[in-house]
Amino acid sequence: MRRKTSLVLLALAVFFAALSPLLRWYAFPRLAKIPANQYQDMVLEAKDATLLDYGTMTAKKVSKVTIVQTLKGDVAASEKIEKTAGRDVVVWDGLSYVQGPDGKMVSEIPERYIFDAHSQAPVHAPGEMVDGDPVKRTGIEFKWPFLTEKRDYEYFDAQSRTTNPIHYEGTRTFRGVPVYYFEQTVPWIQVPFPKTMPVKGITPETVARTGTTRWYTTVRRFWVEPLTGAPVYGEEIHKEELRGGTLLGGREKVTAFAGHVKMREDYIEHTVDLVKANRLLVLLMTSYLPWGFATLGVLLLLLALWLEARSRRPHPAKVPEPEPVTA
């Protein structure tokens, strides 16, 4: 009976010992993925911002500028690309919609971002674009990979359509969540006018004819939860200027937008709660379960060996009691 039990324990020991690395290095990269049908929105605000009044072509102080950012996974497009890419792909259609204090549109920039569902590496396929312009991203955007490392990453800037390093600048705690802090500075650079302008009749082509150009700089900050790679908070110190041309009436430049853009409080709370829940799932797959299974495997093996040793121990032979000696 003991031999049978020790054999079952041995099988279980090997089962759990094998499950530990398989879960961490085989199952985790295949299961931890961004769902192809993900839909999420985000609201950011810049309070006491500066905004261009297109009526007078002067910069004005406004109480608030709101940016609504939506990301929507296109399942059919991702399945089509997966056939040639040979890996799980996510296609995000995004829209950054900027609204002034009066509720009117300031700008709207659509984009399509295609990436590997696990590693977040950009995937190139027809349709990848920013505001209708074909682009070829060489860096990440919106999200970091699972198990983010303490290093600089290449981050794609949609305004300038360029990829620049975003620097790891230390580990911090954000509302109880351990995070990596990243910062990127995009120096002043000429950028295209949005295809959809806030004033009817004005198009990027008509502005281009005046000789006026659009320039932009930003300091981008992200607090990234490293297990999920999800930013729990983000900020931008964003400045835009129109420079030169007849549109400015002889002025050298005018501020089109300047503001410190921050996530709205209710969205911060929502994101932190979501990331905390997902963080636990990643921890289960990368740490809790692999270590738990490995420990269980060792304990079961020791138990099996102990039972086996006991079953092999020879039973002590019965020694007949000496008979009493009579004198």
Partner: peptide, 25 residues
């Protein structure tokens, strides 16, 4: 152990359908 892990990963995630919700304006 191999059979269990292979079965779980083969099942994978459900891709679902594209959300009917619009890009917000």
């Amino acid at each position: 152990a191999f059979a269990l892990v292979l079965a779980i990963t083969a099942m994978g995630q459900q891709t679902g359908r594209t959300s009917p919700k619009p890009l917000l304006t």
